[in-house]
Simulated assay, not measured.
Amino acid sequence: MSTPDVIVVMGVAGTGKTTIGPLVAAGLGVPYAEGDDFHPPANIAKMSAGIPLDDADRGPWLDAIGAWAHARAGHGGVVSSSALKRAYRDRLRAAAPGVVFLHLTGDRALIGERMAGRTGHFMPTALLDSQFATLEPLGPGETGVAVDVSGSPQEIAGRAVAALRAMTAPA
């Protein structure tokens, strides 16, 4: 990628956005921003209490991620964001029209197992079903790729970088 777009690593909790995002950024030679760092304290408190965020909660968070992506336009970057609904992705695209989505996908059992094994994260496993219920996969007119999360982080990131580069390769 000579002038990389900003990549938004999306997917339900537990797909590995925080693990895969930095590996993809390193593979593309661009900076990484952790989407969770854009959440206001009220959102973190709500999720920590096991309460799913609603659209009003997500608005300022998406706007902050969108502002980061806009500032990185033409320079490249990778940022994580669940971006579960098309409306959320539309909001990110409105802020940074060139964003490309990397949708990390996987089996509910595998993702649940990985979530149960992680420590120090505010998102409880109990909210995973609400994440899957909310998820709207990439649809027509949305620029991006879906990558399965089975395998090691290095394998997943390798598949993701290859898929992203294939998108931008000249025809």
Rank of each mutant, 00 (worst) to 15 (best):
R89D: 11
A69R: 10
M123W: 12
H121D: 07
K46W: 13
G16I: 00
A171D: 14
P22T: 07
W68V: 01
T125W: 09
G50L: 01
G27R: 13
W61S: 04
R72C: 14
F132H: 14
A157P: 13
A171W: 14
R86L: 05
A56P: 01
A49W: 01
L110N: 01
P4E: 08
D63N: 09
H39R: 10
L84S: 00
G151C: 07
D107V: 06
D90C: 03
R89A: 09
L62T: 02
G158S: 06
L127F: 01
W61H: 06
A94D: 14
I156S: 02
E155M: 12
L128I: 11
L23H: 11
R118N: 02
P41A: 04
A26I: 04
M115D: 07
D54V: 04
A169W: 01
P41E: 00
A160M: 10
V24H: 00
L84A: 06
D37H: 14
H103D: 00
V9L: 04
I51N: 04
L23I: 09
T119A: 14
A33K: 01
A69G: 12
P41R: 02
G59C: 03
K85C: 10
A169G: 08
E34C: 01
G35S: 09
P170T: 15
S2K: 13
I51P: 00
I44L: 11
R159L: 04
G21R: 11
G98F: 14
F122C: 05
V100H: 07
H103R: 13
A67Q: 15
N43P: 06
T18R: 03
V12P: 05
L110M: 11
R89C: 08
T15N: 06
D5W: 08
A162S: 15
V6S: 01
V99G: 00
G21Q: 11
L164H: 02
S150V: 15
G112A: 15
G106K: 03
G27C: 11
V161W: 06
G112F: 12
M123Q: 11
G16P: 06
K17E: 09
Y32I: 05
E136Q: 15
A87F: 10
G139P: 02
V9D: 03
R165H: 13
P31Q: 13
T18P: 08
R86W: 11
G35K: 04
A71H: 07
A83D: 10
G117Q: 14
V78T: 01
A67W: 10
G106M: 04
A163W: 00
D36G: 01
A95G: 08
V78C: 00
V99Q: 06
D37G: 10
